[in-house]
Design a protein around this nucleic acid. Structure first.
Lengths: 246, 246
DNA sequence: TCCCATGGAATTGGATACAATAGACCCACC
DNA sequence: GGTGGGTCTATTGTATCCAATTCCATGGGA
């Protein structure tokens, strides 16, 4: 009797870090989720660079659990596209080559304008103010890590007005897949700090304040497209054995 | 030493049924994958309708395995968007409401034209002939199940020329997520058999033969858009407790 | 000197057994 | 008669142990 019509929504990450729900506790319930969150954070922060191997036993010891929940966590991360599992061989942090990364950016180009349009009606003035604040803090960011963190917060906020599920999940997945390469990319420009990005962010907030969804979509599309083309000019970020990857 | 640069490609499903690689054996290696494939087939065929509960023990007994690989399979399917897992509660076949299904179709509208463009250069004359054959057989399909199966084969083939990874994976995911609702949809029109679909398929093959990627993309976009709008006129396919869902 | 086969070790995959949580049912109480 | 609490069962999550596979190194041969 209780088998029908139980969970309506797929309970997906939405936009921000996944699995922030559960009331924040999660102390006992599922170690898999907790480990997955920890590993995800490590991967997204660059602590675990692409291509690095993940050994079940190490992770289990690190989190004070057995290998079973670690395997669950790895499965979850594989579904997020952050980890590559090969049967009877092991797990590695997912690695994209230039072509795959460009695919991800082409996808973002196509679907993020949709998401910003869906989000616009739900963006309150308070949220837009916070976006302005984040954009300003981004201009003063000291390190690429800080910059990227603020950048993600900014865009997450810009999408927070959307009540979509599938769309937001896909966008989140694409952001996660490419996060490490954005980090490597911005490390190249640590000193100069591209001014264009800040202009684009201001343009985005302006368009959102004016309620112009089409304009906001165009800004986003240009923003992503420009980044994609800039990335394509630095193939050394891919394939090449990363310095501290061992 | 062996930790760097091992698996380049994320080893994703590509377009067709996932995990058809592995040399076809897979007898012993990973039961998780085998169970996931079985469950996926059951879900996509409609045998397990949306909202139905999946009990680990039942599946384990059915496949002659323990619950551990079943858990792995459920994680995989969750990542595919086919299953909803709730900690300490259980697993259910993922269920979309009308809004979420429309999101999926909006996404398809945006990204499948990209995929057909990427696929066009790799489409041989032989493949195009097979597409013609499939389109013809679709016109004579007896049941919605047959029709849908042929339809998927047709479109999979149309995308088989693409060497993309991320793009094809996303499209495959969207097809899987919405497959059950397409089935329900076509069951409504079992008798009349929409003629438009066949026209669109012929138009697609024609555009592909002429090497007109833009035209092919437009056909696909229209094809998907029309289906989305038709679906929106049948909200009874969603939410409502399905007949044999118990 | 290079290549291939064979051994061992490390790592992953799976089965069984145990603990903990969530839901359901029943009963007492208001 | 309705509601709250309590217990009980079914199901899921985790730990420990064992088997299978893969990778690496070493040794023999061409």
């Amino acid at each position: 009797m209780s088998d029908t019509a139980v969970p309506r929504t797929p309970s997906k990450p939405v936009t921000g870090r996944p699995a922030d729900r559960e009331g924040g506790a999660g102390r006992h319930g599922n170690a898999s989720r907790r480990i997955a969150d920890g590993l995800r954070a490590a991967i997204l922060s660059g602590e675990l660079p692409p291509g690095s191997r993940i050994r079940q036993e190490e992770v289990a010891a690190q989190y004070g659990a057995s290998r079973i929940p670690v395997r669950g966590a790895l499965n979850i991360l594989q579904s997020d596209g952050l980890v590559t599992l090969i049967a009877n061989a092991g797990a590695w942090v997912a690695q994209l080559n230039l072509a795959e990364c460009e695919e991800a950016y082409q996808l973002r180009e196509q679907i993020e304008p949709l998401l910003i349009s869906a989000s616009l009606p739900g963006l309150t003035a308070e949220k837009l103010d916070r976006m302005d604040d984040l954009a300003a803090r981004m201009e003063r960011a000291a390190t690429p890590e800080d910059f990227l963190h603020l950048d993600r917060e900014f865009h997450d906020l810009s999408y927070s007005g959307a009540e979509t599920v599938v769309l937001a999940d896909f966008v989140c997945r694409l952001w996660n897949m490419t996060q490490q390469y954005r980090l490597a990319f911005y490390r190249l420009f640590e000193e100069q700090g591209s001014e264009i990005v800040h202009d684009e962010h201001r343009m985005l907030v302006r368009a959102l304040r004016e309620g112009d969804a089409d304009q906001a979509g165009l800004v986003m599309r240009g923003h992503i497209r420009r980044t994609r083309q800039a990335l394509a000019q630095h193939p050394e970020l891919f394939d090449g054995a990363r310095p501290g990857a061992s």
